[in-house]
């Protein structure tokens, strides 16, 4: 049906790998930050809120360039990570995952934060009178009740990561098989004379992935909402 070339398959699988890894690593960090923003007052809270929202308002190429300066081979963090831990981001798929994770982070955090704010604190109090310490309250009451928001955040983040282009191409370039995601593959195909058919195939694939993610989130959210109403 869809006659995909191996280069196209490579781009699709790479995009999925990059986005899944970016979402899975960003989610626990996002939950922690969302909880802090929703439930704690601390010095520098508005600064933290502003910093995680920066990728949303900065031009993606700026974020990508800042990543290159920081996590590139000669970047402050990048050099240290390469020398001490052997982790290299520059021009690797891991760098694409980092760029996608950072670009999608505000979209991931926001629904989680809203759903944690919506959790009834009186239930958390009831849990504490039943012997649950703060950590147990979080795992047994707050997080399960915030689950629809967590899933919504993960789907939004994943969709953003799949579509990410500007920061990724600036940071890790457009190397087939290593950093060429669906978006950069489509971009490349639009630059060559007879790339239209292949570009359209990839466009179809990315629409299908986005739709599948939305449907999955809808199904999860509906199940979770039923649970929350105790039915």
């Amino acid at each position: 049906m869809l006659d995909l070339s191996s280069a196209e398959w490579t781009a699709i699988l790479l995009s999925i790998r990059v986005s899944v890894v970016a979402t899975l690593i960003a989610t626990p960090i996002g939950i922690a930050i969302a909880w802090l923003l929703a439930r704690r007052d601390f010095w520098g809270k508005s600064a933290l809120d502003a910093i995680i929202h920066l990728p949303l308002v900065l031009p993606p190429v700026v974020t990508g360039y800042l990543l290159l300066l920081t996590f590139g081979r000669r970047g402050l963090v990048g050099a240290w990570l390469a020398d001490h831990l052997g982790i290299v981001f520059a021009f690797r798929w891991t760098g694409a995952a980092l760029a996608c994770g950072i670009m999608s982070f505000p979209l991931l955090v926001r629904p989680i934060r809203l759903s944690i704010e919506a959790v009834d604190r009186r239930l958390e109090q009831a849990a504490s009178t039943l012997g649950a310490g703060p950590w147990s309250v979080f795992w047994t009451v707050t997080l399960p009740l915030a689950l629809p928001g967590v899933l919504a955040g993960m789907v939004l983040g994943f969709a953003k990561a799949i579509g990410e282009f500007g920061a990724t191409i600036t940071f890790v370039s457009n190397i087939p098989g290593e950093t060429q995601t669906i978006s950069s593959a489509i971009y490349t195909l639009t630059q060559v004379p007879d790339g239209d058919a292949a570009a359209l195939r990839l466009v179809g694939i990315s629409i299908a992935i986005a739709m599948a993610a939305l449907v999955a989130s809808e199904v999860f959210a509906r199940r979770a909402t039923r649970r929350l109403h105790g039915i």
Binding site: A126, A127, S128, T129, L130, A132, G133, V141, L228
Partner: peptide, 20 residues
């Protein structure tokens, strides 16, 4: 002593059962 270490039960007017 925080609530969770008091071993004091509390029944609220609005029950506060865990819906999940």
């Amino acid at each position: 002593i925080p609530p969770h270490r008091r071993r004091i039960g509390y029944v609220f007017q609005d029950a506060r059962l865990f819906p999940h």
